[in-house]
Structures are given as C-alpha cells and as structure tokens.
C-alpha cells in the first residue's frame, strides 16, 4: 500500500527575540492538521536552520521573527539554501513584517508572509496546496 507522504515542516525562530507564542500556536495547528512539525525552539542561527532542513528533509521551513531583524536573517537562510543546492523547500515567514519588506522578501524567494492575526487554517491550507503542487512536478 502506498501511503500518502506526511508533510514535514520546521518551525524555527532565527535571531534573538524570545517571543515564541506565535511559533508554538502555528506548530500545534500544523500538528493538528496531521503534519510532522520539527520544532526548533528559540535563537536558531540560519546555519542551524538550513542544516536541520536538509537532515530532516522537510517540505516547509517556517521562520518566526519579531525582532525586526528579518531583512538580515531571512536572506541569509535563502542564501544558505541555495549554497547547499536545496531548491525544493517552501520558505514561510511569520511575525511582524512591514509591507515594504514583504514585497522584497517575496522577490527573494519567500513563498508567503503571515502577519499577526492570520487564522491558522489559512496557513494549513496554503501549505497543503503548495506542497501538493511541488509533489506533482
């Protein structure tokens, strides 16, 4: 019997802010939607995040940032992914990201940005749809 492959997601908090409430809520919502969530806790470096994404062979990398350092941290993660030849992962960002930066991050390769107040259903649905598209290829 060919089982359907479980969707695997990393939830990480790059940088130094300690506000992990949002990350935890998203992690639980994804688990409740039947996904396997590798929860990395606080203060991850981009290097740790990318290496974890490789070893865990995840479909999605979720980055939660509330420190304001997103324009330094997110591009670094994307760069490291490219350096390691990893191109099939969906990168999502959650947290407080100003509109002007949203556009720039998306241009760099972030699939979507979810700000405060986003219903978790919307995140689940987005992940399912995108992962489905990638797997069909």
């Amino acid at each position: 019997m060919e089982e359907e492959k479980k969707i695997r997601v990393i939830i990480a908090k790059p940088g130094l802010d300690g506000h992990d409430r949002g990350a935890k809520i998203v992690a639980r919502a994804l688990r409740d939607a039947g996904m396997e969530v590798i929860y990395m806790g606080l203060r991850n470096t981009p290097e740790q995040i990318v290496e974890t994404a490789i070893q865990e062979d995840v479909d999605v990398i979720g980055l939660s940032i509330l420190s304001g350092a997103h324009m330094a941290l997110v591009p670094r993660v994307l760069e490291l992914l490219k350096e390691n030849g990893v191109e099939d992962k969906i990168v999502l960002v959650g947290g407080i990201i100003p509109k002007v930066d949203e556009e720039k991050l998306k241009e760099m390769g972030v699939a979507e940005i979810f700000g405060p107040g986003t219903p978790t259903d919307k995140i689940v649905e987005f992940i399912r749809q995108r992962v489905g598209e990638i797997r069909k290829r």
């Binding site: 992690a27 688990r31 409740d32 939607a33 396997e36 969530v37 929860y39 806790g41």
Partner: peptide, 21 residues
C-alpha cells in the same frame, strides 16, 4: 504521533542545536 490527527511535534532537536552544524 497523535493517534487522533496523525500529526506530531518533534522537539528533541531543541536540546541538540549545538550539534546541528
């Protein structure tokens, strides 16, 4: 794995971050 949803939160890596790289 949660027997109800089939999902799981895998958090053991939090204690092993220094070994990730």
């Amino acid at each position: 794995t949660s027997p109800f949803t089939g999902g799981a939160i895998l958090g053991d890596r939090i204690r092993m971050l220094s070994k990730s790289t």
